[in-house]
């Protein structure tokens, strides 16, 4: 069973794609971090990701976790978003043979998983070709 409080706590990043950004070095973090530990110790400010970006790399999942079995096979991509920040998301509405590294993509709001027949519906982001 999915964690309802866990899904609720992450609603800003799942539903609105809110990460954060280091005021000093401009590094964008998604999901948001508590501090910019890699480069500096400056305070991080809220930052909403751009909804457009490009594919950095991807893979095709053929043996899926239980909750995604009905969706397999499906593509998962790491995308660099315009203005900074990276997301890992399903790349949908695109035949696998058309997926290319560097291809432009756009975030779309989708249903990510259902908690069985009786539990909550969990929404979030996937990417689609532009």
């Amino acid at each position: 069973m999915a964690s309802v409080p866990g899904y609720w706590r992450e609603r800003a990043q799942r539903l609105r794609y809110e990460g954060n950004k280091c005021e000093s070095c401009d590094e964008v973090y998604f999901p948001p971090r508590r501090s910019c530990g890699i480069k500096c110790d400056e305070e991080l400010k809220p930052h909403t990701l751009s909804t457009t970006g490009k594919v950095l790399t991807y893979t095709v999942i053929r043996v899926a976790p239980t909750q995604f079995v009905d969706e397999a096979p499906y593509a998962v991509a790491i995308c660099e978003m315009d203005g900074g920040g990276r997301i890992t998301a399903q790349l949908v509405d695109c035949p696998f043979e058309n997926i290319k590294i560097g291809m432009p993509v756009r975030i779309e709001f989708r249903l990510i998983q259902k908690d069985g027949h009786h539990g909550i519906l969990m929404y979030g982001y996937k990417v689609v070709p532009v």
């Binding site: 949908v92 779309e108 709001f109 990510i112």
Partner: peptide, 13 residues
Amino acid sequence: PSPDQDTITMSVE
């Protein structure tokens, strides 16, 4: 609609 699309997802878009 895809299995991951419903009235809520289309309304958000």
